[in-house]
């Protein structure tokens, strides 16, 4: 009987060991999904464009040595206002995400193709193998002429002043006529009183 129990225990240990090995066989691996979004509704030349990169780690392990590089905003077409187009992120834990924001300003109007950013990371922390990935593409967007944009959306302050000046004659002339006759008759009434 004692021997039997011992054999059971052995069997148990062996099965446990096998179970753990099968578990560790599934190595933890990071997997990044990267979205690149343009948050602006209108893309206007000389105006800020907000670009958001979100890195989602949907893998089982942490992604390390993450580097994101966006060559989609060449310096001859865009001014970098804020943020960096090349970022290094040390670590993205599994099941989390990281957001990176860049503000650029287009120099000219016209159509521009917003391309994907490039990412490289270590999917397995212990091995130096890099995984290369590309983000989602916002696609082609039309950058509006600044004058055209102002025509539609500016406050038109000067235009309103011009409008007021143009309106003045129609208001001032009748008022002056009224004032003239009023003073005239008031004088008459005073004369009557004195009489």
């Amino acid at each position: 009987m004692n021997k039997m129990i011992k054999s059971f225990a052995l069997l148990l240990i062996v099965s446990m060991a096998l179970a753990t090995t099968t578990d560790s066989g599934e190595e933890t691996r990071a997997k990044l999904l990267v979205s690149k979004q343009i948050l602006n509704k209108y893309l206007v030349e000389q105006r800020d464009i907000l670009v958001k990169y979100t890195l989602y780690n949907v893998g089982t392990g942490p992604a390390t040595h993450v580097s994101l590089e966006d060559q989609g905003f060449p310096s001859e077409a865009f001014d970098l206002v804020s943020g960096k187009l090349e970022v290094q992120i040390d670590r993205i834990a599994s099941g989390t995400n990281i957001t990176h924001v860049v503000i650029v300003r287009p120099r000219a109007h016209g159509y521009f193709n917003f391309t994907a950013a490039e990412i490289s990371y270590r999917p397995v922390e212990s091995s130096p193998n890099l995984q290369y990935a590309i983000s989602s593409e916002p696609g082609e967007g039309g950058i509006v002429n600044l004058a055209q944009f102002n025509k539609q959306f500016s406050s038109h302050f000067l235009d309103w002043i011009a409008f007021v000046i143009m309106c003045l004659p129609t208001v001032v002339i009748p008022y002056s006529l009224f004032l003239k006759s009023k003073t005239k008759y008031e004088l008459l009434a005073q004369k009557k009183k004195s009489n």
Partner: peptide
């Protein structure tokens, strides 16, 4: 339509 090329041992994301 994305028409994105994914090279070997590489990843891509589409939204």
């Amino acid at each position: 339509a994305y028409n994105r090329e994914v090279k070997q041992e590489s990843e891509a994301t589409v939204s």
